[in-house]
Nucleic acid binder design. Structure first.
Lengths: 233, 233
DNA sequence: TAGATTGTTAATCGATTAACAATC
DNA sequence: TAGATTGTTAATCGATTAACAATC
């Protein structure tokens, strides 16, 4: 397959990315935000071009890997000069849908929920927390950052009226499943779950678990692997 | 290879797990905490035995996978009856070093750092935050949960004196690299990094990034994949 | 042109899944 | 014993890495 014009290739790549289902490798999806972060730092430093080899070197990824990942986002570089940083940034933004927002409801205004509401740069990552809810009625009426805290009773009607697709779950583990059920019953189609609990939801609902303890376990494991350099030969 | 006695096999498995370096598949390491969480829920519900097939079913993992993962932790089940839940729990605890604690220092007592200090069940996951630090001197002297907040100046001397190996980094992105440098200079060998920044550290230092935005990106991506069911055929 | 860099096709590696023998 | 379940060995699948042709 050979294409004479740059624009043709671009369109084809785009079609191939959207046609046959998901099929974007998860590892690629995980690396893209890291590329984005590094590229925007380079841009802030005034740099305009970058080579895949350079990114690979700094980020500790194989250079072929970087090229493949970038190709998936649909952008192209030029031999000898490399990639335009601003083009890469917009390509990644578009690919990750960071150029638009999904409205989200958060349930569980404890310290973790509060931290998320105050977390900077959230809206740049494609989501916006438009309202928060808590089982404790005394929290209703609060305003954390820009986000109002509402009583639980309003959750379903508001979620339906506003067609909320994303729920952020920061309640204690004991309440996690009940909260997930409420979200599902209110039409929410994707749950970002911070409770260390395996949620039981219908097939059509997406759950993404943010597993703090898993991440910590990986860290401690790596640490003990390097400390204890293999007792037996 | 065939072993007549149960105890022989156990010892061999243990040796094989510790001899030839890391070599524990990362995906396995990621799944173990999920197994653990589900198993402890079963135990609380009074159940004593479980089959790999059942765990596989509930957790959405292939049953062979579950068996391999459990085998890595060094525990054995019995045909017909399955595994003793309590044995599995202690095996996973031991394997992930959740039966002992690593002392950790936290830097950055913002809302996220505070949330971590208040997070329940932390010590059960193998780490204990023994002190927190912040660049804002007015925060020194506070006590959050059980953890004292100390002035930055004390970081290095205390870390060295207490042989602290783990640093938790919850400062804003701008301060992340400088904080990492401080940690490395104070003898810390593993950094749990919550800032969305690629830290530059010496080879012997382990960095585990907890990437909030990556997790969110995966969620939003999956969501849009299911919503827009392939425009072109 | 020569050299650097891209993007693609082929080879390798590792994790997952399938098939099956062992055993209570 | 028959059946259920384990644990292991072989086959498949997908991601990473290597090799190389294309091009500015």
């Amino acid at each position: 397959m050979n294409h004479d014009f740059c624009i043709d290739t671009k369109i084809l790549i785009h079609l191939e990315a959207t046609v046959p289902g998901p099929s974007v490798p998860i590892p690629t999806l995980r690396r893209l935000p890291r590329y984005y972060q590094y590229l925007s730092r380079l841009k802030n430093a005034g740099q305009e071009q970058v080579s895949a080899a350079h990114m690979a070197e700094v980020l500790g990824v194989h250079h072929t890997q970087v090229r493949k990942d970038l190709a998936i986002t649909g952008c192209q570089g030029r031999p000898k000069t490399g990639h335009k940083i601003s083009e890469l940034l917009t390509a990644i933004e578009g690919f990750l849908h960071w150029d638009s927002h999904s409205d989200a409801f958060l349930v569980g205004v404890g310290s973790l929920g509060t931290a998320l509401m105050k977390y900077p740069g959230f809206d740049k990552a494609g989501a916006r927390i438009v309202a928060a809810f808590d089982h404790d009625p005394t929290k209703a009426g609060l305003r954390i950052g820009d986000t109002p805290v509402l009583p639980m009773e309003k959750f379903t009607s508001l979620a339906e009226r506003m067609h909320i697709a994303v729920g952020i779950l920061t309640v204690p583990s004991e309440a996690a499943q009940a909260t997930a059920d409420l979200m599902v019953g209110s039409g929410i189609r994707a749950i970002w779950n911070f409770a260390p609990v395996n949620l039981d939801v219908p097939d059509h609902v997406i759950v993404e678990n943010l597993e703090l303890f898993t991440s910590l376990a990986l860290l401690l494991r790596k640490l003990s692997d390097t400390c204890t350099p293999q007792p037996v030969g």
